[in-house]
């Protein structure tokens, strides 16, 4: 029996994945940087509010519109609030909106897409047409409409962001499930007595998870941008809450008179966050699918 020669180190799937992740991060500096930035964002979201030097909501009119200094690293705004504290504290809100909306759209779009791809027929037609309908709108305008109609709350921003991302998830999940529909392991699962629903949930879904996770990271940046955008035009979170979109909107009025820092720092934070999630998505794609590596 010559074919039984151990050529691989015995390793569980998780350990191998971690080893592979470490390899990708160390091999690709950009991905390493993105992971670093991601950790900073998560850290800011978790402990930011407890470590910032000033209360992000406390106004101090005597110290209004001060440029960046040792005391106020990012300067102060028109009400004398510390911009640094507000940028850090806003991380949590923006991050939470992005994460919950992505989780929601993953559940809705992912499941609908997998069902459409696997079962085909009417399920496929219905899911496909719903996705087409959503795609027919300019997405940001659709999100605006949903929030305007349903009311100006964080919950509705999450729902609106999830709905506009639905087609992306449904289509990716559908395509991935569709190619696995006739796979040998699906037939084998059928022979093993699995019901169709169990085949979808226990056999097909875990196989497309890696691709979905990449998709989640890529749309995370868009979700943050969407939430900030809604706040920017006054449809999202309301002042005086610290939120990047509002801060940019408020600071924009002062740009002309030279107080650039009020809009610049939250804008830069927004840009870094979106940048980070996009890079992270590319890195994750390398981890889960080495063939698509660029």
């Amino acid at each position: 029996m010559t074919d039984i020669v151990a050529t691989h180190r015995p390793s569980s799937g998780i350990a191998a994945t971690l080893r592979h992740a470490r390899y990708v991060v160390s091999e690709n500096r950009v991905t390493g940087f993105a992971f670093g930035l991601f950790l900073v964002i998560v850290l800011a979201a978790l402990i930011g509010p407890y470590v910032v030097p000033y209360d992000p909501l406390a106004s101090n009119t005597t110290a209004a519109l001060k440029p960046p200094s040792m005391q106020h690293w990012f300067g102060t705004d028109q009400l004398g609030r510390d911009v640094f504290a507000r940028v850090i504290v806003a991380t949590r809100l923006d991050f939470v909106i992005a994460v919950t909306s992505v989780a929601l759209v993953f559940l809705m779009g992912g499941l609908a897409g997998v069902a459409a791809g696997f079962f085909g027929g009417w399920t496929d037609r219905v899911v496909g047409r719903v996705a087409d309908t959503i795609m027919a709108f300019p997405l940001f305008v659709l999100a605006m409409g949903i929030v305007a109609a349903m009311g100006n709350t964080v919950q509705n921003i999450v729902i609106a962001t999830a709905i506009v991302n639905f087609p992306l998830y449904a289509r990716v999940a559908r395509a991935e499930a569709n190619v696995r529909r006739e796979a040998g392991f699906v037939l084998a699962a059928r022979l093993s007595g699995n019901s169709e629903v169990r085949i979808v949930l226990a056999h097909v879904l875990p196989n497309i998870m890696p691709i979905m996770i990449v998709q989640m990271s890529l749309t995370m940046g868009y979700a943050i941008l969407n939430a900030a955008g809604l706040s920017f035009i006054g449809l999202g979170v309301r002042p005086p809450t610290a939120e990047w979109g509002i801060m940019v909107a408020e600071g924009a009025a002062f740009m002309v008179s030279g107080e650039w820092w009020i809009a610049f720092f939250p804008g830069a934070a927004l840009m870094l966050a979106v940048f980070c999630f996009n890079l992270l998505g590319d890195g994750l794609r390398d981890i889960v699918d080495p063939q698509r590596r660029t």
């Binding site: 040998g184 392991f185 037939l187 084998a188 699962a189 056999h203 875990p206």
Partner: peptide
């Protein structure tokens, strides 16, 4: 099955 690779769930 014909193809031993294709007929095993990669996640199992």
């Amino acid at each position: 099955f014909q193809d031993p690779t294709d007929s095993l769930n990669p996640r199992f």
